[in-house]
Amino acid sequence: MTENTSAPPPEAPVADRTGPAWSRIPVLRELRQSVGLQRGMLVAGLALCLLFVLMALLAPLVAPYRYNQLADDAGTFARQAPPGDGHLWGTTVGGYDVLSRVIWGAQTALSTVIIAVVAALFLGVLLGLVSGYLGGWLDRVLVTIADAIYAFPTLLLAIVISIMISGGQSSKWGGIIAAALSITVVFIPQYFRVVRAETVRLKAEPFVEAAQVIGTPTGRILSRHVLRNATRSLPLIITLNASEAILTLAGLGFLGFGILPTSAAEWGYDLNRAISDVASGIWWTGVFPGAAIVLLVLGVTLVGESLNDLADPRLRIRRRAIGGASIENRDEEEQR
């Protein structure tokens, strides 16, 4: 760090450059840094996420039936059949196999999350950088709009947007894209706010001013000097965004604005149909898809929560007792 203070570098260091290369990848770096309970939470979260990714990728292989299959060689499936032979987790009121729909549902949920996060991340970061760096009336207008959207209930906005995109009912990809885009719109303000605040702060940093003085084009300053330093807190927001995306997709499905059961498996829709089953004591149609939502969101949130704690020196469990002074120093270095 001493060389940095004596002569301002053209770009500030993104992270400490000690340790093997893989340890600089965001989540893996934290994994290496963590200890005890926090490491346990991080590992548990990553394991749950991995489980659902595998479920999504291997759905055609591991699911006993297709998500929209109503009959096999032995005949039509019974409706609301309790868990047992042939249907490990029973069948729904529509006659679908619950286990198969839970497994296939992982595909729908993860596709939505990926589209929503990538789109919101891209647009939110771009707008945040430009708005924060250029300032002026554009900045004020964007901040006001972002604040207005930010304060509004996510689900209501998502309903309105999904009406706009799909007219309220849709095919598999139509539904996924409608849900993902409605979540995107809702989440752009969150990335926008964080990246904008960081950009405003970084704009006054010596290394940005140095770049301005030597005539670096604005686009290059933004991409090389500001962006790389403004994105530190993004992994946490991405996990929040991902879990909100899963919950919003399920909420839309629960209200009947999701994807038709014949075009894809969606947990929220299954829960919608399960609500009326409850009165007659039929639990398997609702409990399994619901548990899938909870576990996936739990996994993503555990990862996010651990990242948050590890980034906050007040909350991080120090490794002092085990590792000694050198690790303590590194912690302090990263706080800057």
Partner: peptide, 29 residues
Amino acid sequence: AVLRIFAILCYATPVFFAGLLLKLVFSVW
């Protein structure tokens, strides 16, 4: 640790699923 997992579960459980479980346990069973 237990309380924090509880807090995350509160957030991770969609209200309609929490409602379904509560109905199942306290109303039906």
